[in-house]
Simulated assay, not measured.
Amino acid sequence: MMKKYIISLTIIVILFLIFRNTSKGKMVTNHIKSVVSNVVTDADYINTKGDSISTRVIVPKGYSRVKYAVGSFQEYLRHYRLKPYGSKIINYDDSEYFAQDWHDAILEVPVPSNGLQQCADALMRIRSEYLWEKNKKDKIGFNFTSGHYCSWIKYAEGFRPKIKGNKVTFYKTASPNHSKANFYTYLNLIYTYAGTMSMHNELKKIQVKDVRIGDMLVKPGSPGHIEIVVDEIQNADGDRMYLLAQGNTPAQNVCLLKNFENTKFSPWYRFDKNEPVYTPSYYFDKAIFVRFK
């Protein structure tokens, strides 16, 4: 609030000086545009030609990207492919999302037309596709909100859940099918019965000081919300900043979020213990993070 007050007062003072020293309307208008631009525009950390997270977002002076092992989930996210700059957020039904000023990038994550792939689901998909690509298929699995674990391997072997209230039992009712098409059918099942609440309950909680790429900022609930850290930088003093991406409801493109609370470093974010986190689409009253297994 104080920052906005100072900016407004600065603009008023400069406009007064402009009007006092010129009476030409066109010149005044041009001066006003220049003044407003110079006062409210912060550093630009976006390379519009970048086609991945690491090439789209520029590192602020004094910072460098935290190094991770080649082939790690962290490097997978950091180099995730992006749609061309300026691409819009499109909902599962091909309509445009109402808010098109929240993001600096759209990740190349397909959006099924069934509407199931919402905020938590999109992140589970990204994680599952990474494990699939790294031939770690036996590690693909998630808890339902009921707490029952559903693995891809068992699903591929033909086991299906029978759900009655909060009780879930698995029976072998289908022929084995380890195909990629069946993998996405499995994910649709996960999208239906898992979400922010199950992820919050299932996954390890991470302290703010230990957050790394791949960790997720979560508010459990119905609806809750969840966003994932997709890049991380550090300066010589050990101060760290991060990038956040999200899926959303309705099911839509996964996007890299701007930071409206700290436009000086947007889209980079800082997190503080016990402090809320404001993102364009959601307010997290606490910085609670979880980590995939």
Rank of each mutant, 00 (worst) to 15 (best):
L203F: 13
I206N: 03
S146T: 15
V211W: 01
T169P: 02
N143S: 15
R125D: 01
D138Y: 09
V229G: 02
S95G: 13
N253T: 05
N253S: 14
S222W: 08
N177T: 08
K209T: 10
P60E: 05
K258M: 02
I46C: 07
K4I: 08
R240F: 08
A245V: 05
I153T: 12
S34E: 12
K172C: 07
L256D: 01
K61P: 03
I90K: 04
D237I: 05
A43P: 12
P223F: 11
Y76V: 04
V277Q: 01
L189F: 11
N166T: 09
I58R: 02
D210N: 14
F159W: 14
S198L: 04
D231T: 02
N253C: 10
V66T: 09
V254E: 00
T249K: 09
N91P: 04
D210G: 06
S128W: 00
N259K: 06
D104L: 06
N262W: 07
I89C: 13
K134D: 07
D51G: 14
N21T: 11
K219I: 06
A122M: 06
F170E: 14
N47Y: 03
Q207A: 11
H200A: 14
V168C: 08
Y63H: 00
Y269L: 09
K67D: 15
Y45V: 04
K24L: 08
S179Q: 11
I32W: 03
A120L: 10
L77V: 04
N177C: 06
T192V: 07
T10Y: 07
W152K: 01
M199I: 15
N182Q: 14
T196G: 05
W268Y: 05
Y92N: 01
W268L: 05
I163T: 04
N177A: 09
F142N: 01
T55P: 03
W132V: 08
F144S: 00
G25I: 15
A156F: 07
R20P: 03
N166A: 08
V70H: 11
N177W: 09
V211P: 00
K83C: 08
K258F: 01
I206P: 02
D104E: 10
T279S: 10
N135C: 09
H178N: 12
N143G: 13
E133F: 03
Y191G: 00
W152Y: 13
G247W: 01
A181P: 03
G25Q: 12
F73S: 05
L256G: 04
K139D: 15
H225G: 02
G115E: 00
Q234D: 13
Y155I: 06
N235I: 10
F159H: 10
C119R: 00
F73Q: 06
S146W: 01
K61W: 03
G224M: 01
C119L: 07
N201Y: 12
P267G: 05
H148E: 10
P161H: 07
R240H: 10
D104S: 08
A194H: 02
S23Q: 11
S87M: 09
N201M: 13
S52W: 07
K286S: 15
S54L: 08
L107G: 05
Y269A: 08
C255A: 14
E108K: 11
N114F: 07
F265K: 15
F271K: 03
R240A: 08
K204C: 09
D239V: 08
K33Q: 13
K273H: 10
P250E: 05
E227I: 02
K4A: 09
